[in-house]
């Protein structure tokens, strides 16, 4: 029973990691760059929702606020690409890494200034309390998180496989020049991807906030999501989700069965191990470079 309980809470945590990792992968697939600020995007999305929904701020009903949050985060993602990332277009990957890390710092500072640094909790309809099944105590929020994540992944996967826009995004990521020649508006497509990543981040943020308190340093769990994305092999959407689940499940079990102090190492040790032994993740999409 205890194992099952650890498993469920681990899966729910893992879904949040997986969703952040989905954001990494989306941007990586489309622009071959990694957004180190994705964790802070998630935190920002959660705080925007909190600012709209919570009675001490604007007090809009949750389901009314939801589309508003998506629009805000989507526009923000698009604008970030337009103003900041598009200027880095054509520079080395290092520049993108540094710019996004800096963006993360700026977002964290801005959120701290607007909403304060104290932990707050979101009035979310997903935070329903617990349900008892036999000896098992299930957080309904955990179950909801898992369901929403699964739906989200299927939607995104189909989007990339079936729609014209999704295919254009894939083409732009595989070869920017060739995509231009085929008449794909590469820059606009990349803006759309950033918008999409903003929306996914908002979903992850709402789910994260439904499970507990929220403060501006929540964005640091983005680092664990890196582990998820790497394990899944950057560039694979189901892989990112699976990686997130693995990291999420390992954490509570490590905390339960390993001596204190060792448990928080587990995700990072796993990350390094995967990078060393399967550098392109479990769902490798790369073959050896041929010159």
């Amino acid at each position: 029973m205890e194992v099952l309980q650890l498993l469920i809470s681990g899966l729910a945590n893992g879904c949040v990691y997986g969703l952040i990792a989905l954001g990494f992968v989306l941007i990586y697939k489309a622009t071959e760059a990694v957004n180190f600020a994705q964790g802070d995007f998630m935190m920002l999305g959660a705080f925007v929702t909190l600012g709209l929904v919570n009675p001490e701020y604007m007090g809009i009903p949750f389901w009314l606020a939801l589309p508003l949050v998506f629009v805000i985060m989507g526009v923000l993602g698009y604008l970030l690409d337009l103003v900041v990332l598009r200027a880095v277009f054509g520079q080395s990957q290092v520049a993108v890494i540094i710019v996004t890390i800096a963006l993360g710092f700026v977002i964290r500072f801005a959120v701290g200034e607007i909403w304060g640094h104290e932990p707050q909790s979101l009035r979310s309809p997903l935070a329903l309390g617990d349900v008892r099944v036999g000896d098992l105590v299930l957080g309904l929020a955990d179950v909801a998180v898992i369901i929403v994540t699964v739906i989200m992944t299927i939607l995104l996967w189909q989007f990339f496989q079936r729609t014209k826009m999704g295919l254009a995004m894939q083409a732009a990521s595989q070869n920017q020049m060739a995509a231009y020649y085929m008449g794909i508006p590469v820059k606009r497509i990349q803006g759309m991807v950033w918008a999409l990543a903003g929306i996914v981040a908002a979903v992850a943020g709402i789910l994260y906030a439904s499970k507990g308190a929220l403060d501006p340093s929540a964005g640091f769990i983005g680092i664990k999501a890196f582990a998820a994305a790497v394990i899944g092999g950057f560039g694979s959407l189901p892989g990112a989700l699976l990686g997130g689940l693995i990291v999420g499940v390992i954490e509570p079990f490590a905390a339960r069965y390993l001596p204190p102090g060792w448990s928080q190492i587990a995700p990072y040790a796993l990350l390094i191990a995967v990078l060393l032994f399967r550098p392109h993740g479990l769902f490798a999409q790369v073959r050896a470079k041929k010159v």
């Binding site: 990586y28 760059a33 990694v34 990957q93 290092v94 890494i97 680092i223 890196f226 582990a227 790497v230 950057f234 102090g261 060792w262 928080q264 190492i265 990072y268 040790a269 990350l271 390094i272 990078l275 060393l276 550098p279």
Partner: peptide, 27 residues
Amino acid sequence: PALKLHGVYLAIATLALAILADDIIVL
């Protein structure tokens, strides 16, 4: 082992190393 990795992957691996170092000092 780390330099088999390129660009972004190396950055992430070394970031993990930095976080591990923090915990290892405590251990």
